Simulated scan of single mutants.
Amino acid sequence: MVENRPWLDFLTHLILIVGVLIVAFPVYVAFIASTHEPSAFVRGVMPLLPGDNMGATYSQMLGSGLEVAGTPPVWLMLGNSFWMAMIIAVGKIAISITSAFAIVYFRFPFRMLAFWMIFVTLMLPVEVRIIPTFAVVANLGMLNSYAGLTLPLIASATATFLFRQFFMTVPEELMEAARVDGAGPMKFFKDILIPVSITNIAALFVIMFIYGWVQYLWPLLITTQEQFYTIVMGIKRLMANTDREPAWNLVMATVMLAMVPPVLVVLLLQRLFIKGLVETEK
């Protein structure tokens, strides 16, 4: 029996609203700062209503960037970040789902040893192996390239583990039925496993896309040419201007523009993302 307690409903909704306000307020402040003159952000009293400088600020960042800070136009950095995040997300999913398929459905020597070797790499993030990885990429001539930005980050032990756990829940009768119908391993993988894994793929795509989008240390090391700058690098260069006070309106405008692609990805895949997380937990 479910008890009707209006005060409890009110309390839970109040907590949710307060939580949303706490999370959203810094974003609102960033937007307000992007619509005012740079001096308005350092006066001590931050305005809470939009200013009249919004059009000029966003036009400058999308058009010419900020030459004083050495940043290219925002649209170029957004494009670099988008392709980097997209290649990392698609590559991680492709490698992880095929490796999980091999581990679950093929019987070969040292199968579990291979899985645990993949899983142990979770203890070795990019920051730990940054120097040897950079040396390998430099020796292969992949500096200042999309291959250098993405290939070292393209494998994922987490996604392999999640796909393995999901494949182990697929009934064996499904595989036997496919085998009776004459379907080979790759046809079973393409026509059965991938369609039933769509929600998991969508959930992992959102996570991996954002992971690639917010990368800072690796792009900072691997790129020296402005044409390969990512949006996170651009924000840092805008803030690190030592010749004068940072143009906070331009910085915040860049921050707001940098939020748009990840937010759109989450909104477009929201239903599949939530469903995939729930099914993964099962």
Rank of each mutant, 00 (worst) to 15 (best):
G91V: 00
G91T: 04
G91I: 04
K92S: 12
I93C: 03
A94R: 10
A94M: 11
I95Q: 10
I95S: 11
I95K: 09
S96H: 08
S96V: 13
S96K: 00
S96F: 03
I97S: 15
I97T: 07
I97R: 07
T98Y: 04
T98K: 05
A100I: 02
A100Y: 02
F101H: 14
F101V: 03
F101W: 11
F101G: 02
F101R: 02
A102M: 02
A102N: 02
I103E: 00
I103R: 00
V104E: 01
V104N: 02
Y105N: 03
F106L: 13
F106V: 12
F106C: 10
R107I: 12
R107Y: 11
R107P: 05
P109L: 05
P109N: 03
P109Y: 04
P109V: 06
F110G: 13
R111Y: 07
M112F: 08
M112A: 09
L113W: 11
L113Q: 10
L113S: 15
L113N: 10
A114Y: 09
A114N: 10
F115G: 03
F115I: 10
F115N: 02
W116T: 08
I118A: 00
I118P: 01
I118Q: 05
F119A: 13
F119Q: 08
F119K: 07
T121K: 05
T121V: 13
T121A: 14
L122M: 15
L122T: 08
L122F: 12
M123G: 08
P125I: 08
P125L: 08
P125V: 06
P125N: 04
V126G: 14
V126I: 15
V126C: 08
E127I: 07
E127K: 06
V128D: 11
R129Y: 12
R129G: 06
R129N: 04
I130S: 12
I130P: 15
I131G: 09
I131K: 12
I131H: 13
I131E: 14
